[in-house]
Amino acid sequence: MPPADDLPPGPPLPDAVREALLAPLVDHHCHGVRRDDLGRAAFELLITEAATPAPPGTTHFDTPIGAAIRRWCAPVLDLAPHAPPAVYLARRAELGAAEVNRRLLRQAGIVAFLVDTGLNGAGLLSAAEMGRLGGAAADEIVRLERVEETVARSVGGAAEYPGALAEALAAAAARAVGLKTVIAYRYGLDFDIERPGRGAVVAAAGRRLADPKARLTDPVLLRHLLWSGVDVARQRSLPVQFHCGYGDPDIDLHRADPALLTGFIRALQPGGVPLILLHCYPFHRQAAYLASVYPHVYVDLGLALTHTAAGSAAIVDELLELVPFHKQMFSSDCYGVAETCHLGALYYRRGLARALAVRIGEGEWSAADAARVAHMIGAGNARRVYRL
């Protein structure tokens, strides 16, 4: 269990609510962290969504997440809060990556990691390794675009492409608890919702196979991939995750608004495939609306928690304005460095604690209601949706 000071100061919360907030979490969307020791330049690039170093004379530690690392991760590494960046990184190097990862992952209080393996490389921990170091269960989330890349590089010809893709998706889904798409990055969420015909897919595949190592951006093949993934999800009763909102510079933010998915959401409603809107910031209120009116839509805040850090409590509260409590989940979107897992969990707990304290203090909610909501968002909803 994480330490009690993971919760913010203020009026004392009822014991049942504190226990619910500090209970183990299901991190329903994360990535592997680096297994190797990192120099300062590499570390700084992993604590920002920017793809470039900070401008000369500045540092990515001068960000909300940078300040949070020095405040909350430093004590986990036996340093005083607010340790200077150089001192923090020296201690990190002294302990070594394995010990740093073990400490930060375990103190996050995660009972299960659902790991998007679409970014996995030689330097990142696998889902199983994340589980072992974090003292937790671990399962895989299959990224649709990664499966397609494998098919494009191995299929014999364009006519074989649709069948090979369907077979590869079915095989990947057999070992997974969910699927994920990054169509927001590859095209945008304002895609044509109609399923493309076979002729259009084969023609687009012919163009694709002329350069199979290129990044998939063809809108016809992206739509075909998405609908093929939905078919598999329906057959296996799996949810489909969508990256929405805030991300790295590859994304056009205005085209990553989850409200753009409204037509697609309506089209999927009869099939009942759960759609999970990840991250969403600054469109979390749009996501809350979608979750409130469509029975198969769920939402989280993901990387917004870590990157807004001390400001995240306001975002947690804004999501709770409208989203049904059985439709919200916790994720850290941990990636690259274990600090992002630790901080995601910490700011989720602190933000939700503040929101619950206000509602209890104003007599809006009972302590029992607050505890029940904390259990649902922290783990119960994910266990139900992913059938853990």
Rank of each mutant, 00 (worst) to 15 (best):
D139L: 08
D250V: 01
E49W: 00
F283Y: 15
C280V: 02
A172C: 08
F113H: 14
L216K: 12
I65G: 13
P12S: 10
L46R: 15
L303R: 09
R175F: 04
R350H: 07
N381H: 05
A41P: 13
A83S: 11
A80Q: 14
G302N: 04
R285D: 00
Q235H: 13
H296K: 10
L253Y: 09
C334W: 00
H296L: 01
A173H: 06
L179C: 11
A176C: 05
A382Y: 01
A287I: 06
L133T: 00
I265C: 12
L144E: 00
G188Q: 08
R153G: 15
L301E: 01
G272T: 08
A304W: 03
A288P: 13
I183W: 00
A184G: 14
L303A: 13
R359L: 06
S332L: 01
F191L: 14
A291W: 03
R18F: 04
S332N: 07
N120Y: 10
L169D: 00
F283M: 09
R18C: 04
G361F: 07
W227C: 08
P274G: 00
V147S: 06
A203N: 13
G163T: 01
D6V: 12
L303Q: 14
G32E: 00
A176I: 04
A304C: 12
G199L: 11
I193P: 15
P2D: 02
G131S: 07
L301C: 11
V273R: 14
S292M: 07
A338H: 01
D190H: 05
G188H: 04
A68K: 14
L119T: 10
V297N: 12
V26N: 10
D37S: 11
L119V: 05
G229E: 04
P64V: 00
F264V: 05
A166Q: 11
P64A: 02
R387C: 05
T217S: 14
P12E: 06
F325W: 09
H60F: 06
A50E: 14
P219F: 02
M130F: 10
D333I: 01
V297M: 11
L320S: 07
Q107F: 03
L346M: 10
F283G: 13
D62L: 11
D27Q: 04
G263A: 14
V297H: 12
A128D: 13
L25S: 07
A371H: 02
A259L: 15
A287N: 06
V323N: 01
L216D: 03
R349Y: 00
L46G: 06
L25N: 10
A205R: 12
S331T: 05
G66K: 07
V323G: 07
G118K: 06
H29W: 04
D369S: 11
K327V: 00
V293T: 12
R387N: 03
A267K: 15
C30I: 01
L179F: 09
H279F: 01
G197P: 13
V182I: 15
A42W: 02
A128E: 15
V100A: 04
L119R: 12
M376D: 15
K327R: 15
A170M: 02
R143C: 03
D248G: 14
S292N: 05
P75D: 02
